[in-house]
Structure formats: structure tokens, C-alpha cells
């Protein structure tokens, strides 16, 4: 299951674009469901942070990016990785601790990176990727590469010093950076109401001189349109943009979450706002795709995940023998 060719552009600009947006949202959904299943069956260890319900945000953002544009991601990073074009087999293989996994079994779910698609890595540290993305944007600016960097992070990360320091650097240096916050309303058990004294997280942009917008994070079209504007600003040398994508995580924070801090009703309400049927209905209505085509796209995603799981299960487990040599990159002479 090699990476799909990335398609850039507005999700409703052609049937191919609509197909891509829908396929990638399904790929993320089905991937996360497979992870939950592997976990449940005791085939995967460690922990998992699922992004079910949030698929439109990374999909819409990444449709505005080239393969060379860079991203940094989070502990809840499978969606970003897939949307940027990563190989599903190498992802699943990593979760299963296999040699062919993206990190050779050394990193697991929270550390998948894919240099070929510009993914500088998920991160176990909340906020850890934000200054790194600023640094990638700085390198792009210094070398006149013309690429942009996007940092995906959660609402919770906006209270870490890392966010504030990176935002200021990006603003004063006018870096080609997009600060993409997936506001899923909670950082573990802390609601945004409790963790912020402002109602709209976009207000944070002002203090740094960074334009900020709110988007419907469950609407791949809305996400794309604002992402495109932000990318253009970055490319024009006008500096960073803060995007606040309003969304929701359906599942618990991780496997140990008992959901004591939110109500079943709230979860149900957000499940109604599922980004996938929303977009599906739109493209069928506008005759970009037929109902049958949409069904086939969902099936294609499912098949791709099943194939990735089957191939990964058969792959060779990572071998402890090379661990010591893996710490440093060899100094070339």
C-alpha cells in the first residue's frame, strides 16, 4: 500500500479532488478503528490517541500543501501523517513493533515521522512540535525554498510556553508558518472553559500580531479555504497565521480514559456532526460523485487498511541487536 499521490486544491474543485478528500478522511477513520481493534486484541502495546471525529482538519489542511511543505504533529498524530501521504503499512508496522515500521519499532504511535512526505514527526511532548515547525519555516526562509511549515497541535498545547515562544518568533521573523490548532475542547480532562480565560482561542493571535481565524474543523471545505489563504500569506512573506479548527474527539483521550469530565450527551451531539457524511452529502448533492462512488471510496479505504494490517502482521519484528548503533547518526568522513 504505497502512499497515494497527493492531490492539492479545493476539495470540490473536481471529482478527483472530492474523491481525494473523502478517501483520506476514510483512510484516517478506518486506520484509527483498526488501531483500536489491534489494541483490543492485545496485538499492540503502549497507548493510543485516536483522532476519530477530527478527520476533516488534517485532510483539509494538507490539501493546501505540497509534498515538500513540512508539518509537525502530536501524540494524536495518525491523521496528520496519513493526510500528508504516509504509507499505511509502514505506519501499522510501526505500531506493531516491526522492522519495516517508520521508526523501526523504536518510536511507536507517538513518534511516526515520514521525511518523504515532509512529516517531521509526531511528538510525545505537548507543544514540542511547535517551535520545531517554526525552525523548519526559518530554514525555508533562509534558504528561499518557498515551502511552508505547519504545526498541528491541540487546544491544550496553547497553554505551554512552547506555543507562546514559537508564536512570537514566527511573528517577528515573519516566518512561513501555519499554527494549526485542533480545538477538540479538551486537553485530557481539562475543558477549554477551565484552561482558558478567553472564549475564543483565536484571540491569542492578536497578542503576537498574528492573524487568526476560526474554522469549522469538521468541514473539510472550510478548513481547506482558510488553509489556502494562510499558505498564500506565508508564501508571500507576510508571516504566520493561526487557525483554530473547532472539532471534537469522539474517543477517550487514551486507553485509560473513563470520560468522567464530559457527558454522554455532549459526545452524542458531536457524533452527529461527523465530518465524513457531511462532506459525502455535499458532493453527492453537487453531483461531483455518485452515491455508489462514495460507497466505493469508503470500501477502498477499508481494503487499504486491511491490506496494511495483514502485511504488517507478517513482517519481521524489530531486532534489539542494533539499538546501541541507532543512537547517533554516523559521522561521515
Amino acid at each position: 500500500m504505497s502512499a497515494h499521490p497527493l492531490i492539492m486544491g479545493h476539495p470540490t474543485s473536481s471529482p478527483e479532488h472530492a474523491r481525494h478528500a473523502l478517501l483520506y478522511m476514510w483512510r484516517i477513520r478506518k486506520f484509527e478503528e483498526a488501531v483500536e481493534d489491534l489494541f483490543g486484541r492485545g496485538m499492540m502495546h503502549g497507548t493510543m490517541h485516536l483522532s476519530i471525529g477530527q478527520e476533516a482538519s488534517p485532510t483539509g489542511m494538507c490539501m493546501a500543501l505540497t509534498l515538500q511543505d513540512q508539518i509537525t504533529s502530536t501524540h494524536r498524530g495518525h491523521g496528520h501523517c496519513i493526510a500528508k501521504g504516509a504509507d499505511l503499512t509502514r505506519m501499522i508496522a510501526e505500531l506493531l513493533g516491526k522492522e519495516i515500521g517508520y521508526c523501526g519499532g523504536r518510536g511507536g504511535s507517538m513518534h511516526i515521522a515520514d521525511v518523504e512526505t515532509g512529516n517531521l514527526g509526531a511528538n510525545g511532548v505537548v507543544g514540542g512540535g511547535i517551535p520545531i515547525a517554526a525552525g523548519a519555516a526559518l530554514a525555508s526562509k533562509m534558504t528561499k525554498k518557498g515551502t511552508v511549515a505547519v504545526s498541528f497541535f491541540g487546544d491544550g498545547a496553547m497553554n505551554e510556553g512552547a506555543f507562546h515562544e514559537a508564536a512570537n518568533l514566527a511573528a517577528i521573523w515573519k516566518l512561513p508558518l501555519i499554527l494549526f490548532c485542533e480545538n477538540n475542547k479538551y486537553g485530557m480532562s481539562s475543558s477549554t472553559e477551565k484552561a482558558f480565560a478567553i472564549d475564543n482561542l483565536a484571540e491569542r493571535g492578536k497578542g503576537y500580531g498574528i492573524p487568526a481565524v476560526n474554522v469549522d474543523g469538521n468541514d473539510v471545505i472550510d478548513v481547506y479555504e482558510q488553509a489556502e489563504i494562510a499558505v498564500k500569506r506565508a508564501q508571500a512573506g507576510e508571516g504566520p497565521t493561526l487557525i483554530i479548527a473547532e472539532t471534537y474527539r469522539w474517543k477517550g483521550h487514551s486507553r485509560s480514559d473513563k470520560n468522567l469530565y464530559r457527558t454522554k450527551e455532549e459526545i452524542e451531539e458531536w457524533r452527529e456532526l461527523d465530518p465524513i457524511p457531511k462532506f459525502t452529502a455535499k458532493v453527492i448533492k453537487s453531483k461531483l460523485l455518485s452515491k455508489e462512488e462514495c460507497g466505493a471510496i469508503a470500501q477502498e479505504a477499508t481494503d487499504a487498511i486491511i491490506a496494511a494490517v495483514n502485511e504488517s502482521v507478517k513482517a519481521k519484528p524489530a531486532d534489539p541487536a542494533g539499538l546501541l548503533e541507532a543512537v547517533f547518526k554516523k559521522v561521515s568522513v
Binding site: H45, G46, E94, G97, K98, C103, G105, R106, G107, G108, H111, P317, A318, P320, L323, L324, A326, V327
Partner: peptide
């Protein structure tokens, strides 16, 4: 411990 960061896979 070995002089390495802690790896993910159980066998590692």
C-alpha cells in the same frame, strides 16, 4: 540501562 533512549516495541 543501555545508553539509549527507551524504545517502543516490547522486545526492544
Amino acid at each position: 540501562g543501555m545508553n539509549i533512549p527507551i524504545p517502543y516495541a516490547p522486545q526492544l
